[in-house]
């Protein structure tokens, strides 16, 4: 089984982003960038499947700017076998990324695509589902467990109020949720080895995909701050307000 793991280079999760004073976007100059944490989980899962003998090769791919090559190296330092960078403008939309990935799937013929459930920058939570739709493959989103069965996989998904397990025929698309695993640290020797693993660079245009944007940013704002409310004198008064004023109980 061959696994394709699409990963995204995003603002590091420890960094507090700030909106530019002119409201044109988020200020990303000099900000630390890292692999999207959910994608790190996807990479880890793919490597574990290979280590268990359920997979033979793990190929990581990123669609984005040239520096995404660093992110791909990190994935290879964790254990991915090789990498493909599809160069494009910064932060393409999920639909365009799904189309690029579809083109790569045609070329690489993986049996399974695992990717993070969402990127922590645009929080779209869409690329996996969109890719599955375009490929007409089955999908299992928000995975907390993946197991290889005879001719397919069983995936446990996190759903509202619990979990459910689905059986998917291969090929399939799975998106990783937080509890799927705890990613390993890349060791120094593996970081050095990763520098020598193959990394192929393509241009989005070479794959014949229209990267045109469907969404235009009108403005970006700071979230509205909360204001202090009222102090209430007693528990009874609080219950009354929660019932009749806020209507939340």
């Amino acid at each position: 089984m061959k696994i394709l793991v699409p990963i995204k280079r995003v603002v590091d999760y420890n960094v507090k982003v700030r909106v530019k004073m002119d409201g044109s976007g988020v200020d990303l100059t000099g900000v630390k960038m890292s692999m999207n944490p959910f994608d790190e989980i996807a990479v880890e899962e793919a490597i574990r499947l290979r280590e268990k003998g359920a997979a033979t090769e793990v190929v990581v791919v990123s669609v984005g700017v040239a520096q995404a090559a660093d992110t791909l190296r990190t994935a290879m330092a964790m254990g991915a076998d090789r990498a493909i960078l599809v160069q494009s403008e910064e932060s393409p939309e999920p639909l365009a990324v799904a189309k690029i990935l579809k083109a790569l799937v045609t070329r690489e013929s993986p049996d399974l695509v695992i990717l993070g459930k969402q990127a922590i920058d645009d929080d779209m939570n869409a690329t996996g589902q969109m890719l599955a739709g375009l490929l007409d493959w089955p999908q299992a989103t928000f995975a907390s467990k993946i197991e290889k069965t005879g001719d397919g996989i069983e995936v446990t998904r996190e759903v509202d109020g619990g979990s459910e397990t689905l059986a998917l025929a291969l090929p399939a698309v799975v998106t990783a949720d937080l509890r799927l695993n705890e990613p390993r640290y890349a060791s120094l020797p593996n970081i050095m080895k990763a520098k020598k693993k193959p990394l192929e660079t393509l241009q989005a245009a070479d794959l014949g995909v229209d990267m045109g944007r469907r969404l235009t940013v009108v403005s970006v704002a700071e979230p509205p701050g909360r204001k202090a409310g009222v102090k209430v004198g007693s528990a009874a008064e609080l219950v009354e307000k929660l019932r009749n004023e806020a209507k939340v109980i």
């Binding site: 939309e93 920058d121 929080d123 469907r214 940013v217 009108v218 403005s219 979230p223």
Partner: peptide, 28 residues
């Protein structure tokens, strides 16, 4: 292109949604 987590509808084609875990709000 789907628009997830809409928190405000400005008009039939303009929508407001959170990004960066709610640390910024974008109008699209």
């Amino acid at each position: 292109q789907i628009i997830p987590d809409v928190m405000e509808i400005v008009d039939a084609e303009t929508f407001v949604r959170p990004i960066f875990a709610g640390n910024a709000i974008v109008t699209l």
